[in-house]
Design a protein around this nucleic acid. Structure first.
Lengths: 162, 162
DNA sequence: GGCTAAACCCAGTAAAATAGTCAGGTTTGA
DNA sequence: TCAAACCTGACTATTTTACTGGGTTTAGCC
């Protein structure tokens, strides 16, 4: 799990798409104009998003992209993983005898569990929740999906609420 | 808040340092050897860590680095922020009238709050907890710091426990 | 059938970040 | 005094990022 501007671009574009797909397919040219992302870069990103099964394309005039699943079934983690092919940060390549001594795989264990934790968090932030936040212009409501009842919480609690 | 291999190197090095500083200053040469990170790269990283007030250096023979504060007072977020100077991912530079229309600052609001959330989480993972995890070789115990009493939890709960 | 709008594909590329290397310093304990 | 260690800055190779430009294919529409 890396967190780079590339993933941010992809999430931004997907959010734009989700906000508009009720009017039929959304063109990359439109996303490019609205979000100030170059068209060809979007083509690269959406190629990966399509191969990952997150979006579907309609070719020809009037075509564009639509979400392949419901916005609730797409998480931020899904999007980032789709465009940001992972580099294993453990210089051991996942093997067990990294350094020979008892020091073995210190970074391996450490990062896999940290990664898992962050990934797990971003898996709980759905595209639908981003759409809601954007629609109400109350972006602090990125709250935990496990809370079935969205009781009104303070701003500080919402932001750190995990 | 970016999450790259650079920050991972820094956290790994700091963990190595925290595990050994009870025997006096730890040399970069030692960290370099144990963690397979080039010495000069470590010098760059520790220059930033020192200027951020996370470590202190002892010069001369027998010198090296020690933690500037208690391991409990240093978080993973501190380390990553120290070495990974932030790039603002909002193409508006933080201003309010990004795109003129009502679409303004969509990415800005989105990413600042997401960043805050992740940062907040990593702020709660202290270097001391990583040391404990490493010492017991039970790295799944990266649990939420807010839980005062570390009741025994299942592995799945520990990993996703936020 | 032609026009056109859109996805799709691919090769290249400039700028930035990453992950170093190298060559020298300076400081200070033994 | 000397050598171990930090410190500094410049330089470099590789990778990633973000983009450009050119084409091909598909399909709605007049």
């Amino acid at each position: 799990m890396r967190l780079t501007t590339k993933g941010r671009f992809a999430v931004t574009a997907m959010l734009d798409l989700a906000l508009r797909e009720s009017n039929g397919p959304v063109t990359l040219a439109g996303i490019s104009e609205r979000q100030s992302i170059s068209l060809s870069y979007l083509e690269q990103l959406f190629g990966k998003l399509r191969r990952a099964g997150l979006v579907e394309s309609v070719r020809g005039p009037g075509g564009g992209y639509t979400l392949a699943k419901d916005a609730e079934a797409i998480s931020v983690a899904d999007i980032i993983v789709a465009v940001d092919e992972p580099v294993d940060a453990t210089q051991c390549g996942g093997r067990e005898n990294c350094l020979g001594t008892n020091q073995r795989c210190m970074t391996h264990d450490l990062w896999t569990s940290l990664n898992t934790t962050i990934f797990d968090y971003l898996s709980k932030v759905s595209l639908a929740s981003l759409v809601d936040s954007q629609r109400t212009k109350d972006v602090t409501v990125l709250q935990d999906q496990r809370e079935a009842r969205p009781t009104r919480r303070s701003r500080a609690e919402s932001i750190s609420g995990l």
